[in-house]
Design a protein around this nucleic acid. Structure first.
Length: 278
DNA sequence: GTGGAACGTACTGCACTGGC
DNA sequence: GCCAGTGCAGTACGTTCCAC
């Protein structure tokens, strides 16, 4: 956003929009904006990792110790952010034509949002924003009720999740949990073309293909040659042996395979095979 | 002794799977 | 998402056996 990327002091990370960074003359811009207002305490509750200021005996130096957040919590935030983006993308891809899926979509969206922003008020704001993207929006009252219900369910889940040390194992069966990608795909009839553009709402085949592509990229980065290149190299090696054998035969036209093996230094079986390629 | 075929093995890249 | 394990396919090689 135009802020100084070298800044590591937490109190100087934020740069206000439209202000100019005197260091590099870059104007701070805004990529995302909404009208939600947050309490400082609320913002602090979103922050992960949690920071704890360690007081030093010396007045001037105060050390900031960063405590790593629970992995389960990080995963939850990460997955919910992707899920939220995918649901918004779905509405965009369908040009707002969500009749028949509006309530399901809105509830899932609100449940997801509630796990990110925590506050009921903010959840309702997000819900209304999504609803406005529908070609045939639901009534405001209906949106508010759905958002409140989803927020309540999400809060109950988060409390249990938190008490369970941020793991899903061992949670009560009747507890309403975040829906799996496959469930949302089924409920909202998300097509394979739509899934191709998603990050979270994807099926096993897409996940597998993306993983395969990722692993392949890593192999290339590690300097591993592609199968085609590898095989071409092997064939080139063989061809040079064939050439060597060809020369040996021209010099010794009557030599047997065993004799040619002695001359070239190849084994008998290698000469045998190379000869068939001449 | 010779040429050739069959078999097992090694190496490599790759795709896929399951556990964490 | 990461990683280890597994199996497959392509290529090459060595050993063994057999017919001539």
């Amino acid at each position: 956003l135009g802020a100084d990327t070298q800044t590591t002091d937490p109190t100087r990370v934020l740069r206000f929009p439209n202000t100019i960074n005197q260091k590099n003359q870059v104007r701070a811009t805004v990529d995302i904006w909404n009208n939600i207002e947050y309490e400082l305490s609320t913002l602090y509750s979103y922050c992960t990792p949690v920071e704890k200021i360690k007081k030093s005996r010396r007045k001037k130096k105060r050390e900031v110790v960063t405590l790593p957040p629970a992995k389960g919590l990080v995963d939850l935030y990460s997955l919910n952010t992707k899920k939220k983006d995918d649901l918004e993308l779905l509405v965009t891809l369908r040009s707002g034509q969500m009749v028949g899926y509006r309530n399901t979509c809105l509830y899932t969206y609100c449940f997801t949002i509630a796990l990110i922003v925590k506050e009921q008020k903010s959840t309702i704001v997000f819900a209304r924003q999504l609803n406005e993207k529908f070609n045939e929006p639901l009534l405001i009252k209906e949106v508010q009720e759905t958002a409140k219900s989803a927020h309540k369910d999400a809060s109950t889940f988060f409390k249990a999740f938190s008490d369970n040390k941020y793991t899903m194992y061992g949670l009560a069966r009747d507890l309403i949990k975040p829906e799996k990608a496959s469930t949302i795909i089924r409920k909202l009839d998300i097509s394979s073309e739509e899934r191709q553009q998603m990050r979270f709402l994807i099926d096993d085949v897409i996940r597998q293909n993306r993983n395969t592509e990722l692993v392949r990229e890593k192999r290339r980065e590690a300097g591993v040659k592609s199968r085609t290149e590898y095989e071409a190299n092997e064939r080139a090696k063989t061809q040079s042996k064939v050439d060597l054998l060809h020369e040996a035969i021209e010099t010794n036209p009557t030599a047997s395979i065993r004799k040619l093996a002695e001359i070239t230094g190849f084994s008998k079986s290698v000469v045998q095979r190379l000869k068939s390629q001449l």
